[in-house]
């Protein structure tokens, strides 16, 4: 589904990603962990197509297409979804209207008829239950005045509405209390199928108690320095990142 080969990217001449390799197949959940500043969020942003970052080398193939050639909107229409670490507040645009546009633009791209108001509403009601989000919240300006938990639930709600093939969760757990974390994780687990995949970017192991990954990768200084199963995450929980940092710094020295 997603093949990242030697991906390098920089921002303002500063190299952040220094050769990432990653292969994600349908049905899999991958977790990317790592200390602050290791490049986790950069990887998420580069995959979603944020223009601030310049890809300086490598390739990314998504569903057989050259992902890096696609605009951010076409990446989304092809089935890539980024749950933002910091969802943007947009005054004057309600989540409902915004989602209606997004869903129907995607359907148009896929050669499907737009959903009528009733179908859309039915769909929305169903997905709202998934993340225990209220209709009144969705009628309000997008993310404006939302609590941290409401913003993250709104991200997962949008993910459910758009039904992506690959969802990237960028530190979705940051700033969430344990109840909100459970709701978010529960939503993700219900959306999991054998055909879709998740890339969960997180600093803490805690989220992975709820969203259980098939593979765990540790990102450090712009490279994946360790890969393993969920046991690797447990080890990190106990030992912290310092032992990996020390090992890697020694290998590189």
């Amino acid at each position: 589904m997603l093949k990242i080969n030697n991906l390098q990217a920089s921002i303002e001449e500063k190299e952040i990603l220094k050769g990432i390799n990653l292969d994600i197949k349908p049905g899999e959940i991958h977790a990317i962990m790592g200390p602050n500043g290791s490049g986790k969020s950069t990887l998420a942003s580069v995959l979603a197509g944020r223009a601030d970052y310049e890809v300086t080398g490598g390739t990314v193939e998504f569903m057989g297409k050259d992902l890096l050639e696609l605009s951010p909107e076409d990446r989304a229409k092809e089935g890539l979804f980024l749950a933002f670490q910091y969802p943007v507040e947009i005054p004057g645009v309600s989540t409902t209207n915004f989602m209606k546009s997004a869903v129907n633009e995607k359907r148009k791209y896929l050669g499907l008829e737009p959903l009528d108001a009733a179908q859309f509403l039915r769909n929305m009601k169903e997905k709202m239950k998934l993340v225990e989000i209220d209709q009144s919240l969705l009628s309000r300006s997008l993310n404006e005045g939302f609590s941290g938990g409401e913003k993250k639930r709104n991200e997962i709600f949008q993910m459910a509405m758009l039904d992506p093939k690959l969802a990237i969760l960028d530190e979705t757990d940051s700033g969430l209390d344990i109840d909100a974390l459970r709701i978010v994780a529960n939503g993700v687990n219900q959306l999991r199928t054998k055909d879709n995949a998740f890339l969960v970017v997180t600093h803490y192991q805690r989220l992975l108690d709820y969203i259980v990954p098939d593979f765990v990768h540790v990102l450090y200084k712009g490279r994946i320095v360790r890969s393993g199963t969920k046991e690797l995450a447990k080890e990190l929980e106990v030992k912290g990142y310092d032992f990996i940092k020390a090992e890697v710094d020694q290998e590189m020295a």
Binding site: S71, E73, A76, V88, I90, S101
Partner: peptide, 14 residues
């Protein structure tokens, strides 16, 4: 620009 990117990342054209 952040708002624009957010909308585009959901599949809404520029």
């Amino acid at each position: 620009e952040d708002a624009l990117f957010y909308l585009r990342a959901r599949g809404i054209s520029a």
